[in-house]
Amino acid sequence: MLIVDTDVVLVERQLRAGELTCPSCGAVLAPWGHGQPREIRGDLGSRLFVRPRRSRCCQVTHVLLPEMMWPRRMDAAEVIGAGLEIAALGMGHRQVAAHLGLAEDTVRGWIRRFRRRSEDVRRYFTVALVALADDPVMPEPAASPLADAVSVVAAAHRVAATKWPEMHTVSRWAFAGRAIDGRVLTCTPSAS
């Protein structure tokens, strides 16, 4: 799996031009059909229909997942991120679920997973913040590790948007997912 831009025309052009490489071996990826169509819940109850592109190298296929999605999630990155931001304010999963209009079990799962990963996410984006900013301003310590992680993701996104104006159109949670290969909730990110 490789997290790519949400613009399908751009991704197709990059794939056909040999600009996308395998995350494992570094070989150029070639087109290889499409994945299963997916329905993703977007902001304000919208439904997004996505059919991810597939690619191939070294006899292995890779799903090219748009940055607005995270692996194995039915909700868009910005919806999950909004829930995490609300949880960072100290609200419980029931309040977050009610605010977003989603099932409590779904939201509880996000928050639990993010809590387990929050220190790794905080560390990764702190390193990114220092690397991106000429004179980084670190966020003040927050009330919890979850809140610390949320605030440093926001700070890194602000700096990236200052450095690259096109980042203003990318939500901070799509940015976060792209930066750590969609592994905000699933696997411990590696600091690279």
Rank of each mutant, 00 (worst) to 15 (best):
D7R: 15
L10N: 12
L10C: 12
L10G: 04
L10K: 09
E12A: 14
E12M: 14
E12F: 06
R13A: 15
L15Y: 06
A17E: 07
E19Y: 09
L20Q: 15
C22F: 08
P23D: 05
S24Q: 09
G33A: 13
G33Y: 02
H34Y: 15
H34W: 05
G35T: 07
E39W: 10
I40V: 11
I40N: 02
R41L: 15
R41C: 15
G42S: 02
S46K: 00
R47D: 04
R47P: 00
P52E: 01
R54V: 06
S55W: 02
S55E: 00
R56V: 03
C57E: 11
C58Y: 14
C58A: 03
C58M: 09
Q59L: 12
H62Y: 10
H62I: 11
V63P: 06
V63N: 09
V63Q: 09
L64V: 07
P66F: 11
E67R: 03
M68W: 01
M69W: 11
P71N: 14
A77H: 05
E78Q: 08
I80N: 00
A82V: 00
A82C: 07
G83Q: 06
M91Q: 12
G92D: 15
V96G: 09
A98I: 14
E104G: 00
E104W: 12
R112H: 04
R113I: 03
R115H: 09
R115E: 12
R116A: 15
R117T: 01
S118D: 00
E119T: 03
V121P: 02
R123E: 05
Y124V: 05
V130S: 01
P136N: 12
V137Q: 15
E140C: 04
P141F: 08
A143G: 13
P145Y: 06
S151T: 13
A155D: 03
A156D: 08
R158W: 09
M167W: 11
R178T: 14
A179R: 11
A179W: 05
D181V: 00
G182R: 01
R183P: 00
V184G: 04
T186D: 15
C187A: 13
P189I: 00
S190Y: 12
A191S: 08
